[in-house]
Design a protein around this nucleic acid. Structure first.
Length: 761
DNA sequence: CGTGCTCACCTTTTT
DNA sequence: GGTGAGCACG
């Protein structure tokens, strides 16, 4: 197994002295502590990545291990890639480490080698995403005549994921683990789900970890092999590990005990997906003779920003405690702005962005807008578009989650993996080929026989059906064509260049034709996306590798040098920094999220506070926090209260703009008895009525229609225009939807039409 | 079998 | 504002 790795040319060893240049004493100590177990408690902006990468380079410089003998684990692909690039630079090798990646990708890599040993049919197993998981569970529930409306599959998925995060297999569940839901049958469904996964030759994210642990426990000789292979282990974002990941690490570190974990308990924001802050809190107990080093000097933010962050986080109880300090020059105070509604908030934010760019010469890619939920992004995007400010969204709707891409992927999956029933179902009638629910039901029946569990894959069942006289002539022909088409692709797939294969499949299946005939405006974009997919496949040797890449990838955002503002969720912003950061939507209920507090109470609130801490500490120089007094959610208005986190920011480090709104909102909140914040406790019908009344009131008050009218204006050169920022102007040219407008002698390009209104309107 | 309509529900956060 | 489910109809 090691031949494939050892052929990499031995890199030039890094110069040991260079590694320590510019490091403070704590950082030096961390870099020099190579052996044994080490926990580096690294506050935000304290040079964590620098220490991690230098430490690994140091191990190599000392000759203690070579680049393929070090395991480096992170949580996101992006972090893994960046880390490995930096290590590569330090150790003078383009490839960096051979074993650097996310928990999941490394587990997948290990499992591919030993798939058969842990009950998988072959090493080309499919990795399912959330969507697939949910559909599978839904089928299982429906097969048991459960009303999926009352007992959503999503909830069951959350429960099962929770078990998997705790490394609990169906047979290990105790009565206390099983919730009083689904007639107490949740554990049965878990077992059935696992069985179904195995027949599909599929794993989910949790399985990647679990099966790896099972493998190590069942086959000690394999574990020993990996002990020999990984002489050193390095873990980033340790505060985000769950029980399964912790067990996995412990197993791997058992041999030599050389493990270094870096983390910050104040930045633990993934409890909802099983992260145990406890892991970092009890590190000393878990690993023998553990050494703890604290990094407390912050090199990122001004003292003002740091102060705000520290004061907010100080309200939390469960902390290891650190005192961050910064020696950077201090200038701006934090700006806290109150707005009437989300629209205004977004508009003024964009105004500010333009000003910062124009007057403070801050490049756009040094600015970020960090939101709590991706739903907040749309309004902001709209305003950015109208003002022609270039932006990029990270997270949100992902490329690989789009319909057409998932359809195309389903074709590919079925070619690679005939057992993949989920893929089969997805594309059996897409494009339409006369195989609707009726036909699909027959295939399902045939695959099941009279049993509850499936005895064969839908694909196999279809082949079988064609051998017998079961279907009527028309669907029979349709199914036959489909199966024969798939079989043909399966045959040629191994020998054909991947991108040609993909193109052929999309053409021959009629999928692209379906889109070409589709006259709806989104069809064009879909075709573009498919082209993009084909382009993406060119980087891959075979179907197998491509599918694995896709199923583990999340961050499609490539680091561009483009001048764009970044919009993303607070969760997505971890590990990043920007000169200016905007934190909109700081309203109780939205942030801190009401749901989080309802579900986990104080613990939920504390996690939200850590999220606030993460948000604040992303800013290097300028920080803007804002909230809206009224916000529209699902097309309905809600009154809101400023976030309690705003109150926790000391007054001497911030300026409050629109103090009138600010206090009015607070006052309103007190008089409303905060009923709306406890909406889940209010009888639904009554609540809706109250909301509608409020909406009507608002509508009358502001004299705005509930839905903005979609009037189409014809703009002509010479028309007078009014613009809410620049006043009156004259249109100089019209190009499609974009206008060239002159205001007071200044010419503005690319103004979108819905940003201006004709004078007489 | 396919399509086009209305309606309810929806939004945390991600590997 | 978007989507999936359910239903009526061709």
């Amino acid at each position: 197994m090691s031949q494939e790795i050892t052929h990499i040319a031995t890199p030039t060893p890094p110069n040991y002295d260079d590694l320590l240049v510019g490091l403070n004493p704590q950082q030096v100590e961390a870099v020099q502590t190579i052996y044994g177990s080490l926990l580096v408690l690294a506050g935000a902006g304290t040079g964590k990545t620098k220490v991690l990468t230098s430490r690994i380079a140091n191990i190599i410089a000392q000759g203690s291990a070579r680049s393929w003998e070090i395991l480096s684990v992170t949580f996101t692909n992006k972090a893994a890639r960046e880390m490995n690039e930096r290590i590569g630079v330090l150790i003078g090798s383009e490839t960096g480490l051979s074993w650097a990646g996310t928990f999941h990708s490394i587990c997948a890599k290990i499992l591919r080698r030993h798939a058969e040993l842990v009950g998988l049919q072959s090493s080309n197993f499919t990795i399912l995403n959330n969507d697939d998981q949910e559909r599978l569970l839904k089928q299982i529930l429906e097969a048991d005549n459960v009303d999926v409306k009352k007992n959503p599959a999503k909830l069951l998925l959350a429960i099962i994921d929770g078990w998997k995060n705790k490394a609990l297999l169906p047979e290990n569940l105790t009565a206390g683990d099983i919730p009083d839901l689904y007639n107490g049958k949740a554990a049965d469904y878990y077992l059935r789900y696992q069985n179904r996964l195995r027949t599909l030759n599929a794993v989910d994210f949790g399985d990647l970890l679990l099966l790896c642990i099972t493998l190590f426990r069942k086959f000690p000789e394999i574990l020993t092999d990996y002990h020999r292979r990984f002489k050193f282990i390095s873990v980033d974002e340790y505060q985000d590990t769950n029980v399964a990941q912790y067990l996995w690490l412990r197993l791997l570190a058992q041999g030599h005990g050389n493990i270094c974990c870096v983390g910050d308990d104040d930045q633990s924001i993934y409890a909802w997906r099983g992260a145990e802050v406890g892991n970092i809190l009890k590190f000393e107990k878990d690993f023998n003779n553990a050494k703890i080093i604290r990094l407390e000097q912050n090199y990122r933010s001004t003292p003002t920003i740091l102060r705000a962050a520290s004061e907010v986080i100080a309200h939390n109880s469960d902390r290891l405690g650190k005192t961050l300090f910064s020696e950077l020059a201090d200038d701006d105070k934090i700006t806290i702005t109150s707005h009437w509604d989300g629209d205004e908030e977004a508009r003024l934010m964009v105004d500010k962005i333009e000003d910062l760019q124009k007057f403070d010469s801050i490049p756009l890619n040094n600015m970020a807008i960090l939101v709590r939920t991706s739903g907040q992004m749309r309004v902001i995007e709209e305003k950015l578009i109208t003002c022609a400010v270039p932006y990029r969204v990270i997270g949100g709707l992902k490329f690989y989650e789009r319909q057409e891409i998932r359809d195309a992927m389903a074709y590919l999956r079925l070619v690679a993996q005939p057992y993949d029933d989920l893929a089969f179902e997805r594309i059996i009638n897409k494009p339409k080929r006369g195989l609707g629910d009726a036909a699909l039901n027959i295939v399902h029946q045939h695959a099941k026989g009279d049993q509850i569990d499936y005895r064969m894959a839908l694909f196999t069942a279809s082949q079988d059906i064609l051998l017998h006289d079961i279907l009527k002539p028309r669907p029979r022909k349709a199914l036959k064509d489909f199966i024969m088409m798939m079989e043909r692709w399966q045959k040629v797939a191994p020998t054909m260049p991947l991108h040609e294969l993909v193109e052929m499949i999309l053409e021959e299946s009629g999928y692209t034709d379906m889109l070409r005939l589709d006259k709806s405006p989104e069809a064009v974009g879909r075709l573009e996306n498919l082209k993009e997919l084909v382009r993406a496949t060119q980087d891959f040797e075979n179907l197998q590798g491509f599918l694995e890449h896709i199923s583990l990838i999340t961050d499609t955002a490539t680091v561009t040098s483009n001048q764009t503002v970044t919009i993303m969720t607070l969760h997505g912003a971890k590990g990043l920094e920007f000169e200016c950061v905007f934190l909109p939507g700081w309203e109780d209920g939205l942030f801190p999220s009401q749901r989080s507090m309802d579900e986990t109470g104080q613990a939920g609130l504390e996690e939200e506070r850590r999220l606030a801490y993460v948000g604040i500490t992303r800013a290097k120089k300028k920080l803007f926090i804002s909230f809206a007094q009224n916000r529209r959610l699902y097309n309905q208005w809600q009154t809101t209260v400023p976030s309690r986190f705003i109150d926790e920011i000391p007054e001497d480090v911030c300026n409050i703009v629109n103090r009138a709104y600010f206090s009015k909102a607070k006052h309103k909140a007190e008089n409303h008895n905060m009923d709306y914040l406890n909406s889940n406790q209010v009888e639904t019908a009554g609540w809706k009525r109250a909301q509608n009344q409020y909406l009507n009131q608002r509508t009358k008050m502001l004299d705005v229609p509930k839905r903005s009218p979609k009037t189409l204006h014809v703009y002509k050169v010479g028309d007078t225009i009014s613009h809410n920022k620049f006043g009156d102007g004259i249109i100089i040219s019209v190009e499609g939807e974009r206008l060239l407008i002159q205001f007071d002698g200044n010419i503005f390009k690319n103004i979108m039409v819905d940003f201006v209104t004709p004078k007489d309107f």
